[in-house]
Design a protein around this nucleic acid. Structure first.
Lengths: 211, 211
DNA sequence: ATCAGTTCTGAAACTTGTTCTAGATTACCG
DNA sequence: CGGTAATCTAGAACAAGTTTCAGAACTGAT
């Protein structure tokens, strides 16, 4: 995979992020993300080829790399994008269960069903996420924050979450990502993922009750 | 990363696995694994370069690929190897805690400290593990079974584990892998990983008690 | 409208995983 | 020991991620 060295970079001198993007730049960015999602839906991680993304987006390869400094950056950004949509969708139909743990489980299973409809896209995004090295940390962190927000939303707590609840949420996220990976690589069935999610969601009850 | 297509392969026709290896073949395999671990210890996933592994192992590139059909296969096999060692080491000093959950947490923290001594090696192995696609499933499954065995050992149950306990162990494994990734990519501190492990290990208490 | 600086393009080059091929070596069988 | 099939070697070739560079197009300020 080319270089992908783990060296520290001198605080990326460019990147169209700090200065606000012009309209055409925003459009380019959007076009690239769209192409990326389309190719990913077709054939997963391997099907997203930088040259092809550039070509289909009507952009030079160098430009693609200016917007997204690596394939992993691109796919993580794609995931951010998709997660935003998901978050909005989920917001509209809040979970119906009573128990907070059950609500979270229900929400995650909804998300899981959405991923099942686009397994290749899921593959590309999740693989990129777990393969990301330190240079992608900020972007991965954003994804993580989004996921946390979705779970906390599902819990619909009265007040702010306790540290214990936040720990439980972290563990739920861990389980969620890892369970997805086992499913995507064919080592776990859908039913198994469901069980794992339901199992980990019991932690919410544990951390809500006084010990 | 070259090809790495996701297509199904025709049930690998060769591979020195089914027929027992000759002595020289066993030696070659061992040499390769050793080189792999050495390079990985130096610079992580990226530092394990197939040409260099071949050269340092005194083996042609084609031979390396005959023994390990991809870089990910090689690194997962390396992980298998390391896990065996770890398992034996852990067996010698069983955890001292009373509570099963605490025993598991203690064991995993020991393993974590071992990984901290070779963070680059840990990086290479864990990244390979989570990046593995379907073609590596059998090997990844072996690693998973080893990990399960280590955790079950730490629990030192009286009888065979209940299905609920097995679910808890699965979730613990998920958390373990994912927490390692966040640590390796610099998004979580050692202390944070510790908290996550301790949090998830509470599930053992939950699933041991009658509900 | 012009100029300077940035951004974008097109194309080649480079890196590393992976595959392929022709010829040597080795292992095993009679 | 001789022959044959499997294995190994050396090296080229190929694929896809990444970098680089010269020049065209665009932007913003004057």
């Amino acid at each position: 995979m080319g270089h992908m060295t783990t060296e520290s970079k001198p605080a990326r001198p460019e990147l169209p992020a700090s200065p606000p993007l012009t309209e055409r730049q925003e459009a380019r960015r959007r076009r690239i993300l769209h192409t990326s999602a389309k190719l990913a839906s077709r054939g997963g991680f391997d099907a997203v080829q930088m040259r092809e993304v550039a070509e289909l987006s009507g952009v030079a390869l160098g430009t693609l790399y200016r917007y997204f400094p690596s394939k992993v950056h691109l796919l993580v950004a794609t995931m951010q994008d998709q997660l935003q949509h998901l978050h909005e969708t989920l917001r509209k139909r809040p979970p119906s269960e009573e128990d907070p743990g059950a609500r979270v489980a229900q929400t995650l299973m909804r998300a899981f069903r959405a991923l099942q409809r686009e397994p290749h896209l899921a593959d590309a995004m999740v693989r990129a996420l777990t393969f990301a090295d330190r240079s992608v940390s900020p972007e991965v962190d954003t994804v993580s924050r989004l996921t946390t927000a979705i779970i906390l939303d599902a819990m619909s707590l009265d007040g702010p979450p306790t540290p214990e609840q936040l720990s439980a949420v972290r563990v739920i996220e861990h389980t969620w990502h890892s369970a997805l990976i086992t499913w995507l690589s064919g080592r776990a069935s859908i039913a198994q993922v469901k069980i794992d999610i339901e199992t980990v969601c019991r932690l919410i009850a544990v951390t809500s009750r006084p010990r």
